[in-house]
């Protein structure tokens, strides 16, 4: 049972990592917690689902469609909820509040549009492999692979490419980056839409893996992603990746060897403890900035 539970934990954890990557990207560059990320994730899942069930497209096309929708939602989010705040000198809590607004707005729109019932993908994606005592499904392997490669690509992109450097410069100091000729507005839009596209793809993958897509999944998974963001250290990509896996394993093992009814307290119990003993997160350094 131990090995199978470890697999379960890793799969669950990799979905958390996938969500947390989006949070982390925005946190790292804009120093903002985007509370609406979970809902963008949920919308992505629905778009993917509708594409697969109604237009009968290939799952990869569906993911592309979800990513596009996510990117558009991200651009709207930036326009409506973030840009107006940048022009004014407002409290640093303002973006948090306005993204909370976007999140409850999107959640109730989804309830209206899609109804409260959970829906599922056609079950043609449930192929599975057996490794001795372990059983792992194709989707699970795929999710693990996607999240690890995304992590690597993001790290490389931020460290080596020109846009990546501009992104890090913006993260360091918006005014200075502006003076140095970086079009910071463009960089910010790019970051938010990229993170949202990632979130939407994550939505499709998680919907596939658990075979359930419903409007409140944004808030449940979003809160977990938030926990991972803090667990791994705000704005730290490796931290988000490993933090997600740690949280997934911790949750599964709390069920396997503890009491399943406290499962939902594990995530926040862990971050409360982490914040008190190591506020910069497991993998963060004291002056972490810029998605390194």
């Amino acid at each position: 049972m131990f090995w199978q539970q470890l697999v379960n934990g890793l799969t669950l954890g990799s979905t958390y990592s996938l969500i947390a990557l989006g949070y982390t990207l925005i946190m790292g560059v804009l120093n903002i917690v985007n509370m609406a990320h979970g809902e963008i994730f949920m919308f992505g899942a629905f778009v993917g689902l509708l594409l697969v069930t109604h237009l009968k497209v290939n799952i990869f096309v569906a993911m592309l469609g979800a990513a596009l929708t996510g990117a558009i939602l991200g651009i709207i989010l930036e326009r409506v909820a973030l840009r107006p705040l940048r022009r004014k000198a407002v409290s640093h809590l303002a973006p948090l509040i306005s993204t909370i607004g976007v999140s409850i707005f999107l959640e109730s729109v989804a309830l209206k549009l899609f109804g409260p019932q959970s829906r599922d993908f056609p079950s043609s994606f449930t192929a599975a492999f057996e490794f001795g005592p372990m059983r792992i499904s194709l989707v699970q392997i795929f999710i693990l692979a996607v999240s690890f490669s995304l992590m690597l690509v993001l790290r490389f992109w931020l460290a080596k490419t020109k846009i990546g450097k501009a992104l890090r410069a913006t993260a360091e100091n918006i005014e200075t980056a502006n003076l140095l000729g970086v079009n910071t507005n463009k960089i910010i839009v790019l970051t938010v839409s990229l993170a949202s596209a990632l979130g939407s793809v994550a939505g499709v993958l998680v919907g596939l893996s658990f075979n359930a897509v419903e409007p409140t999944m944004g808030i449940t998974m979003g809160l977990k992603g938030l926990a991972v963001l803090i667990l791994g250290g705000m704005g730290n990509i490796t931290g988000a990746m490993l933090g997600g896996l740690i949280l997934g394993i911790a949750e599964v093992f709390s069920v396997a060897y503890g009491n399943s009814s406290y499962r939902d307290a594990v995530a926040f119990g862990m971050i409360i403890v982490i914040l008190f003993i190591r506020p910069q997160g497991l993998f963060g350094s004291r002056d972490q900035q810029g998605g390194k």
Partner: peptide, 13 residues
């Protein structure tokens, strides 16, 4: 919990 989607840990046990 209501709205949970992942039951693998409980069912594996």
């Amino acid at each position: 919990a209501d709205k949970d989607t992942d039951f693998s840990a409980q069912l594996t046990k």
